[in-house]
Write a protein that binds this DNA or RNA. Structure first.
Length: 431
RNA sequence: UCCCGGGUAGCUCAGUUGGUUAGAGCGGGUGACUGUUAAUCACUAGGUCGGGGGUUCAAGUCCCUCCCCGGGAGCCA
């Protein structure tokens, strides 16, 4: 099948007769003149015909054709101020591929429950198209940044024998009679790999069986994790900062139209420049106390605390050196204060919360062995992980960034469910 | 698991102190209209008021219970 120009390229074809394929987005009529709005995935095109200008069967079909029917239109491209977008098609031919049944999603408002049940159709709406284009651009920029900065992509396994971090809930599956779990992080596999390749990253789906039911949680989400040999906490923070600045500027540069459709206030994204504030945990706690929080020193931040704290800044905030007790077992203790971990959480502005968590990893064999025992983890299962500390161990570190939370923040969305084509949420596995 | 808020037409919702035959907008159908912009206008079809039980002369409305959905907490990206 020969494809004509895309709707968003039509302006260059003024005066020409073109043929386009798409779906009927809307239709209107006024007696002897009829309008069919065509949608092709790149834009919307008003197609116009007067009764005297086209064969009767074409004019009739313009009225009979149902919303979302698939059609091919032929006509002359012309500029007209009255057309949405300023370009329209003087329709001469209309052929029907399939007459759609009554379309469930109307032009008026719908509830999110109904839209989620019809996610496969909801994807066709202009807002969802714009969001998914932004996601695609963000995902591409994730890969491009690390490719351009000398990292090697290292795919980590999805089926794993045990909890990477021990405690949190995992999806269990059967592996020829043995228990296997869907991965919740590739980090433990990246640490050995960075000793082979220097700078590595992985990017893939991640699974958490936590029964979380909030606007920030999915059971299945995409996470990118870099890991760098010879890197300390300051290097990890600098990397996270440089990376986020790149991603945001890339979206501002290439997704202008999409951000307009979503009605994102891009002024807030323009602020995402170096340097990001680096706030020690203990200073953040003091700051929150001054703002009225009853957070206890030693506790991790709650959702409200994160929101209040990030509202004090116009760009992402890097909170570092949390108490070791609330962080993962593999994090290097701060030599200045061994009760603290050399870790960082990057909190997105506007109340979007944690999008990055990273740290310097323990590189001393005996210290790590002690931590594994303290956490009640089976030493034998972690032998390969401990091995790295026996053969030329070095300081190293990295972070993980959640794609969906990043998309939600950059697009200014109230809920992560719109950032992924088919969200997997608590009690929702359909469509 | 816990705490809130919901469930009425295909969709989004209203429904007073418990009181006659349960309403609107959108969508569907029929018709009108030569430049519509979520077109407009007229007419029309469309309901097990989430399920079960109870109180009452009378329940969409009050009580009990179960189911489902949404938001939040914990946990996390």
């Amino acid at each position: 099948m020969a494809f004509g120009p895309a709707i968003n390229q039509l302006r260059a074809h003024e005066g020409q007769t073109v043929t386009l394929h798409g779906w009927v987005y809307n239709k209107r009529s006024s007696g002897k003149v009829r309008f069919v709005i065509l949608r092709d995935g790149t834009g919307y095109l008003q197609c116009v015909a007067f009764v005297k200008d086209v064969p009767q069967e074409v004019f009739d079909l313009m009225d009979l054709v149902s919303l979302e029917s698939s059609v091919t239109v032929t006509g002359v491209v012309r500029l007209d101020q009255r057309a949405p977008g300023g370009v329209e098609l003087g329709l001469t031919g209309l052929t029907l591929h399939h007459m759609a049944e009554e379309y469930p999603i109307g032009k008026k408002e719908h509830g999110t429950g109904f839209l989620m049940e019809n996610r496969h159709l909801w994807l066709r709406s202009s807002r969802q198209v714009a969001i998914l284009r932004c996601r695609s651009e963000i995902e591409q920029s994730f890969r491009d940044y690390f490719y351009q900065n000398g990292f090697t992509l290292l795919d980590s396994p999805i089926l794993t024998p045990a909890a990477c971090e021990g405690t949190t809930t995992l999806f269990e599956t059967d592996y020829f009679g043995e228990k296997a779990f869907l991965s919740q992080s590739g980090q433990l596999y990246l640490e050995p790999a960075c000793m082979a390749l220097g700078k590595v990253y992985c990017f893939g789906p991640t699974f958490r069986a936590e029964k979380s039911k909030t606007r920030r949680h999915l059971m299945e989400f995409w996470m990118l994790e870099p890991e760098v040999a010879f890197a300390g906490l300051d290097d990890v923070m600098a990397l996270a900062e440089d990376f986020l600045v790149y991603v945001v500027s890339r979206v501002l540069d290439r997704c202008t139209e999409e951000l307009k459709v979503i009605e994102r206030d891009t002024a807030k994204l323009q602020n995402v420049r170096k340097p990001f504030p680096r706030v020690p945990y203990k200073d953040a706690v003091a700051q929150l106390h001054a703002l009225g929080s009853d957070l206890r020193y030693g506790d991790d931040f709650g959702g409200d605390d994160e929101t209040v704290l990030t509202q004090q800044y116009d760009r992402p905030v890097m909170v570092h050196r949390y108490p070791s007790a609330v962080k993962a077992f593999y994090m290097e203790p701060d030599p200045q204060d061994p009760g603290l971990a050399l870790c960082v959480d990057v909190l997105a502005p506007e109340g979007y919360g944690e999008i990055i968590g990273g740290s310097e990893r323990i590189h001393d064999h005996d210290l790590l062995l002690g931590r594994i025992r303290e956490h009640g983890l089976p030493v034998s299962a972690f032998q390969w992980y401990l091995d790295i500390r026996k053969y030329g161990t070095v300081r190293h570190g990295g972070f993980g960034i959640g794609l969906e939370r990043t998309v939600a923040w950059i697009c200014g969305l109230p809920h992560v469910r719109e950032t992924i084509p088919y969200p997997r949420m608590l009690h929702q596995l359909y469509p």
